[in-house]
Design a protein around this nucleic acid. Structure first.
Lengths: 192, 192
DNA sequence: GGAATAAAAGGACATTTGTCCCAAGCTCTA
DNA sequence: TAGAGCTTGGGACAAATGTCCTTTTATTCC
């Protein structure tokens, strides 16, 4: 659920030693919205530390969380390849340290640095791989299973995140999430 | 819903004029399964003509259709970037003409042909862009809206595809799909 | 510290969707 | 041509989920 890509961080760290001025560091407070949906920006970000959520808001104001981004994950990069508006908003969950690249710098790296190119390519492919089974799973299994899966994979997250975010991630209402949680608790007590 | 990428086809056509032997043409009958989930292959495919469906099957045998691939769409390419098993099965819907690349050829092109590299990069980014709003939409709107959207975008498809595929694409059971279709018909008659 | 605001929890009911059937129509083939 | 096996369509009921509303409990901010 929290996605990471350590290799990317490692490589950018070494890059920065060579050309410090091209890649900036930035820190965002928790709950800062860094990108808003349907806008245009001129930076690509790479997370160095912390967690961000990437989500779509529909016309009714409902949020649907696409993924939680952790160390080494990029955002704002899709707009490099096709000249479109952002599809997601990105908001920091915890304090967030990022590297930021101007579109120009990013493009130059893509063209001139084959390792960078490869890392970006792999990152894109991983995002696709990750999304496919996720939505399929959420459709096919009841809420309870989705919660259990989440708790198993990221026990720490369920304590840090507000219920609303967990619900938005699973794609259900808070009411339904609460119901499922209650029934899980009941089951666990009965099985003692 | 049927995704296409004409630019890619155009470029590969010109490539083939230069080095015909590297890129093969292949034709598949309708309903041929070209890739099976959780396997390993040594080819990447690019659709020249026809439609294929790309889907995940879960443990209960339920299919969940990820996307319908049309002209210029690739499949089997994700496994180039990370050394993993396929996540989707791919089956031809209509007769399917494809170009196929061995992993070796594909890798070489990626490394040595910057235009090819860029086209692949953009294709990956587009796949991500496409998936995000789709699943969000399907969660947020009732089945009826999803059908209407589909009929509006691809009127021809709803006539070619079996109901099962349409249901699997929207992520509901056939029963629910039929119910929604019936109610739509009723509404349309009433509004006359 | 106290008011205002947001988050968490859940009752009651409505709606949606799924499950399990059955039946009609079509296609393929032995 | 009879029957096996799909696909389509839908009835009846069960289960899951959403909506609306209220209450309680944290959190934030003057």
């Amino acid at each position: 659920m929290i996605r990471t890509n350590k290799d990317f961080i490692v490589y950018i760290d070494t890059l920065r030693k060579k050309s410090r001025n091209q890649i900036n560091e930035q820190v965002f407070e928790p709950k800062t919205t860094i990108l808003k949906q349907d806008r245009r920006y001129n930076s690509v970000y790479l997370i160095r530390k912390g967690i961000a959520k990437c989500y779509i808001t529909d016309e009714n104001g409902k949020e649907f969380i696409q993924e939680f981004l952790g160390e080494g994950m990029e955002f704002g990069e899709l707009e490099i390849f096709s000249n479109n508006l952002t599809i997601c908003s990105v908001t920091s969950v915890s304090e967030l340290e990022v590297y930021s690249f101007s579109h120009g710098t990013y493009r130059t790296l893509l063209e001139e640095d084959p390792i960078f190119n490869q890392l970006v390519m792999k990152a894109l492919a991983d995002k696709i791989r990750y999304k496919a089974p996720r939505h399929s799973y959420q459709h096919s299994y009841p809420i309870e299973d989705n919660i259990l899966r989440l708790q198993r994979l990221f026990p720490e997250l369920t304590e840090v995140l507000p219920k609303k975010d967990i619900a938005n991630y699973i794609g259900v209402t808070i009411r339904s999430l609460n119901r499922a949680l209650k029934e899980l608790k009941l089951k666990q007590e009965n099985s003692k």
